Computed example of a mutant assay.
Amino acid sequence: MAQSQPLKRLPVLVVEDEPILRLDAISMVEKAGFEAVEALSSADAIRLLEERLDIRLVYMDLDMPRSRKGIEIAAAIRKRWPPIEIILTAAYFTEASLQLPKRAEFYTKPIDPSEIVRAIRRLILSPKAAAI
């Protein structure tokens, strides 16, 4: 009896410096059926994006005091890796106060996990995302 290969789960880069929030985000991504790739800082995120060519979505907290400004990292990701989708979250910013990169989506903390999962699925699995 032949064993079948498990389906490859699409990776989502989770960038969050707060351990509890990072674990929650990783759990949310994995329960949704994706592979969570963990980054503790913006520098860690950039390193992972350079190493992993299969990442197509970044889920990132903008409130990371020990890192470069999250919005600057999001803009750098958009410029350097245009096909990557970006979901941004923050407790201390509003969408109106930010200049979001093109195609980036913003959600205020506390997040609604089901809303984020729907956004991840829409952005990663849509035919439009694959064509960019």
Rank of each mutant, 00 (worst) to 15 (best):
M28A: 11
V58Y: 00
Q5R: 14
A36V: 01
K102M: 10
A32W: 11
R121S: 14
T94V: 01
R66Y: 13
R121K: 15
S126A: 11
A25M: 10
R56V: 09
E30D: 09
S97M: 09
A2K: 12
A129P: 13
Y107A: 02
D61F: 00
P110S: 13
V14T: 02
E35W: 02
P110V: 11
E16W: 01
D44Y: 03
I132R: 15
S126K: 10
I26K: 05
E85R: 15
A75D: 06
L57C: 06
R78T: 09
V117E: 06
I132Y: 14
S27Y: 07
E85N: 15
D112S: 13
D61A: 00
D17L: 04
A91P: 05
R22N: 12
A74L: 10
Y92M: 11
L49C: 04
D17G: 08
I55H: 04
P110E: 08
D112K: 15
L23W: 01
M64A: 00
L62T: 10
L57I: 04
E115A: 15
A130S: 14
D54V: 11
S97Q: 12
L98D: 00
R80W: 00
P65R: 12
V117M: 10
E50C: 04
I20Y: 06
I116R: 05
I20C: 02
R56L: 12
R80L: 12
I71N: 05
A130W: 13
I111N: 01
L53C: 08
D112A: 15
S114W: 03
E38T: 10
L40M: 08
A104I: 07
P65T: 11
A74F: 05
I116V: 15
P11R: 02
P83G: 03
R103F: 08
L23K: 06
I20H: 04
A119L: 11
Q99W: 07
L10G: 05
R47E: 15
E105D: 06
A129K: 13
S114Y: 06
K31F: 09
A129R: 15
Q99N: 15
F93D: 13
A104M: 06
P11E: 01
A90E: 01
R22C: 14
V37M: 09
Y92V: 08
D17C: 08
V58R: 01
P113C: 04
E51I: 04
E35K: 14
I116E: 03
I77G: 00
Y59L: 15
K109F: 00
D44H: 06
E95R: 11
P6N: 09
Q3G: 06
L49Q: 05
R78A: 14
V15F: 00
E16A: 03
S114R: 14
P127F: 09
P113M: 03
E115G: 02
I55A: 01
A25W: 00
P113V: 06
I26V: 08
R78D: 11
L7V: 12
L123R: 11
A74E: 10
Y92F: 13
M64Y: 01
I111H: 02
V12A: 02
L53M: 11
I84H: 09
E72K: 09
I84V: 15
L57P: 02
P110N: 09
L123K: 11
I84E: 08
I71T: 07
Y92I: 11
K102H: 12
K128E: 15
S4E: 13
Y107V: 03
A36Q: 03
A90P: 05
I86A: 08
E35M: 13
